[in-house]
């Protein structure tokens, strides 16, 4: 995967730095005073602007120049877990993530939550944010690989996010397949029975709009965008 290759390069760079430091200690010169640590802290505000789709606890990750998904590519296993079941723990623990944070709980339609994420001595990170629309099979909203390096302290950026389809679970909408309150069904399932490519989401259909087996109603329909995201550098 792209992310692993790029993170692999940055690990090589780090180990070179470590070796240089070791060489220096072999000399009789006094060790240089290490510079003070610098914190780069960001407040990430996620507002749910859907009609009736609670958002799963938001996953926030800071990493190098890479993306954690891409339209037209299969979803990672960690993204599948998030998009099918709303569990961000694998996503935020992905290889190459330098710092991460999770929302405290689901975000109801109309509500918002602010999550703080902090990284030390890394001025040029990239952010990925993802959250499941829980009354769906595998829909999620997010942004990935967005550069933060240009953001000054107290400066913020705002964007709206479309709904993506992880492509790992068919959008059947049938009872037992949707983890949100509309169903209380199964979340993550390792089987992949859909396109196995991330795409933009076609929207939910609902029983009222002609999908007879659907447990969803018109209240669960959504359109783009679904989330308003504001990122503010606070430190």
């Amino acid at each position: 995967m792209v992310i692993q290759q790029r993170f692999g390069l940055s690990l090589v760079a780090l180990s070179c730095l470590a070796l240089t430091a070791c060489d220096h200690n072999d000399d009789n010169e006094p060790a240089p005073v290490p510079p003070a640590d610098v914190s780069y802290s960001y407040e990430v505000t996620v507002q749910n602007i859907t009609q009736g789709q609670p958002l799963s606890p938001v996953g926030v990750a800071l990493h190098g120049d890479a993306v954690m998904w891409e339209v037209g590519m299969p979803a990672s296993a960690a993204l599948e877990v998030l998009a099918e079941g709303g569990d961000n723990s694998d996503f935020t623990a992905s290889e190459g993530v330098m710092a991460s944070a999770s929302g405290a709980g689901p975000i109801a339609p109309g509500s918002s939550e602010t999550i703080t994420v902090t990284v030390i001595n890394e001025p040029d990170t990239f952010i990925s944010v993802a959250t499941m629309l829980v009354n769906t099979n595998d829909a999620f909203a997010g942004v990935t690989g967005h550069a933060l390096g240009e953001l000054e302290v107290n400066q913020s950026m705002t964007m709206v996010l479309p709904v993506l389809d992880a492509g790992t679970e068919a959008n059947s909408e049938v009872a037992g397949t949707i983890p949100g309150p509309a169903d209380g069904g199964e979340g993550y399932n390792a089987e992949r029975d859909d396109a196995d490519l991330v795409s933009f989401h076609p929207g939910v259909v609902s029983a009222q709009d002609g999908l007879k087996m659907s447990v969803l109603t018109a209240a669960h329909r959504f359109d783009n965008p679904a989330v308003k995201l504001t990122i503010t550098r606070v430190e």
Partner: peptide, 15 residues
């Protein structure tokens, strides 16, 4: 009514 699949062949903008 339709020969189109409502779960796969719908879309939301942008396309």
């Amino acid at each position: 009514m339709s020969d189109i699949s409502n779960t796969v062949q719908r879309w939301l903008n942008p396309v």
